[in-house]
Simulated assay, not measured.
Amino acid sequence: MEKTLEKIKLLCAQALAQDKLITFLTGAGISAESGVPTYRGTDGIWVEGSRNYKPEEFATLRFFKENPAEVWKFVLYRKVSFRDLQPNAGHLALASTEVLLPNNFRLITQNIDRLHIKAGNTQAKVLEIHGNMETVRCSEECSMDVYPFPLDIGTAPYDAKMITQQWEQLKCPDCGSLMRPNVLMFDEYYNERLYKQESAIEAALNTGVLFVVGTSGATNLPHHIASTATYRGSSLVDINIADSAFTDMATSEPDKLVLRGTSGDILPQIKQLIQALV
């Protein structure tokens, strides 16, 4: 580990000397250490009555249009489960790293829990490529507006019934249609306005070292970000507890590195080595 960290330190020093970005791409693994259920595991399956809905089935716009109550019940259940969770050592290390690198830091996250913001990262440096659970928008896209999550919903203890008052609060203020969570669904496409696709690719093009943290690369854009960064000469550091779609990229050249362990253990060490450079 010590030898690997020394090599990472050298690569970061080279990137900063060239005025390149140090970029972190994070996924569910970093938030799992705070107690956030992983979306693709068995804890991500939604049970309604006697039926189990898998994420690939109910987390689609098509399913939302046909069964809005089931989707909103799951969203409220999940939002309440996020309510009291706190950032862990990995989140806090990234917040400190942003302070160390005010002009050379980017954080691209697949997570919708906003724990990075809660830890202290700034919205200007965080690209939430799957949206977040703190905002909603019109399901009919009557306008370009994104609204804060209704204050009175998703804060009380979870109740499986959608009461009249909740439905009223979930109406679009412009056209009266039902609001939807401002998150990317499985049958939707990335874009810049909502999911910062172009900003994420631009960051990848200007990255000197890309740290991939707690993500398997199962979705399109994260894999494209890593491919773009490495194609442009970025070093890639894979920080995961197991091999993933990024592992081959991380080991294909001498400058690609793999660190196995939890982000809560490894990211504070990365922060320390960057601190020694600035």
Score class of each variant (00 low, 15 high):
Q123L: 03
A245I: 03
K73Q: 15
E2H: 12
D265C: 06
G27A: 14
T251C: 13
Y195M: 05
D174E: 13
S216I: 05
D243G: 11
N132K: 06
H223I: 14
S216C: 12
N240Y: 08
V212W: 10
M249R: 12
T230L: 08
T207W: 07
R78Y: 12
F246K: 06
L101M: 03
L267M: 13
E98I: 09
P37Y: 02
E202I: 14
L25M: 11
E134L: 01
L76V: 02
L16W: 04
V237R: 04
S227K: 10
T4E: 15
L10V: 14
V237P: 03
A156I: 05
Y53T: 03
L5C: 09
Q197L: 07
E2A: 14
M133A: 12
K54M: 10
S177V: 05
V99M: 00
D238T: 10
G176K: 05
P254C: 11
P37V: 02
Q14R: 15
F211C: 13
A13G: 14
H130W: 01
L221E: 04
F63L: 02
E70Y: 06
L85P: 01
I112K: 07
E33T: 05
P150H: 05
F74G: 01
G131F: 00
F186A: 08
L127D: 04
E70P: 06
T122M: 00
L85C: 09
S235Y: 11
V75Q: 08
T228R: 13
G35L: 02
S252A: 13
I153A: 03
L127R: 07
N206L: 13
R137T: 09
M162G: 02
L107S: 01
A242R: 15
D187P: 04
T42L: 13
Q18T: 14
I117F: 00
Q86S: 07
W46Y: 09
E134P: 04
C138D: 07
Y53D: 02
Q166Y: 08
V75S: 07
E253F: 09
E188W: 08
T122C: 09
Q18N: 13
Y77A: 07
I117S: 05
Y231Q: 14
R78W: 03
T207P: 01
D238E: 15
Q197F: 00
F149M: 07
E98F: 05
R232N: 14
L205V: 13
Y195D: 02
V183L: 02
N182S: 11
Y147C: 04
T164N: 13
N121S: 11
T219Q: 09
F58C: 03
T164F: 11
S34T: 09
L61M: 12
A28E: 03
N104E: 10
I163N: 14
N240S: 14
S177K: 09
L205E: 15
S234F: 02
Q272V: 08
H130R: 10
V146D: 00
W46G: 06
V209N: 06
W46K: 03
M179P: 01
G27I: 07
M1K: 12
D265S: 09
L151N: 04
I153R: 05
V80Y: 00
N182R: 10
N206Q: 14
G208K: 08
F105T: 01
H223C: 09
P55Q: 05
T262K: 11
T164L: 12
T23H: 04
G233V: 11
T215Y: 10
T215F: 10
S177T: 08
Q14E: 15
K7T: 14
L151F: 05
A276N: 15
I239N: 07
